[in-house]
Simulated scan of single mutants.
Amino acid sequence: MPAALPRIVLVGKPGCHLCEAARATVARVAADTGEEWVEHSILDDQQLHERYWERIPVLLVDGVQVDYWHVDEQRMRAALARGRRL
Score class of each variant (00 low, 15 high):
E73L: 01
G83K: 04
R84D: 11
Q65D: 09
I8M: 06
R51G: 09
V64A: 06
V29H: 01
W53F: 15
L10R: 09
G34A: 05
Q65K: 15
A22Q: 03
G83N: 08
E35W: 06
R75S: 12
D45S: 04
E73F: 12
A78C: 03
A27Q: 07
V29C: 10
A78M: 11
T25A: 05
E50H: 07
A4G: 09
V61E: 10
V29T: 13
P57N: 01
Y52A: 03
R75C: 07
M1Q: 11
R82C: 10
V58Y: 09
Q46N: 08
H70S: 08
E35C: 06
A24S: 11
I42S: 01
V11D: 06
Y68D: 04
G63D: 02
P57T: 04
L43V: 11
V64M: 02
R28P: 01
H49W: 13
G34C: 00
V11S: 14
W37E: 05
P6W: 04
P57W: 04
E35M: 08
E20Y: 12
A4Y: 05
W69V: 03
L18D: 08
V38P: 01
G15Y: 12
C16Q: 07
A21V: 15
D67C: 14
V71N: 03
H17V: 10
R85C: 08
Q46R: 15
Q46C: 05
E39F: 14
Q47D: 10
M76H: 01
R77W: 12
R7A: 03
A24G: 08
I8H: 12
P14T: 14
H49P: 00
T25M: 07
P14K: 15
A31S: 11
M1A: 14
Q47S: 14
Q47I: 10
Q74W: 09
R84V: 10
V58F: 00
R28K: 15
L43D: 15
G34F: 02
V66W: 11
A3N: 10
L59Y: 00
M1P: 14
G34H: 02
G63W: 06
I42H: 05
I56V: 15
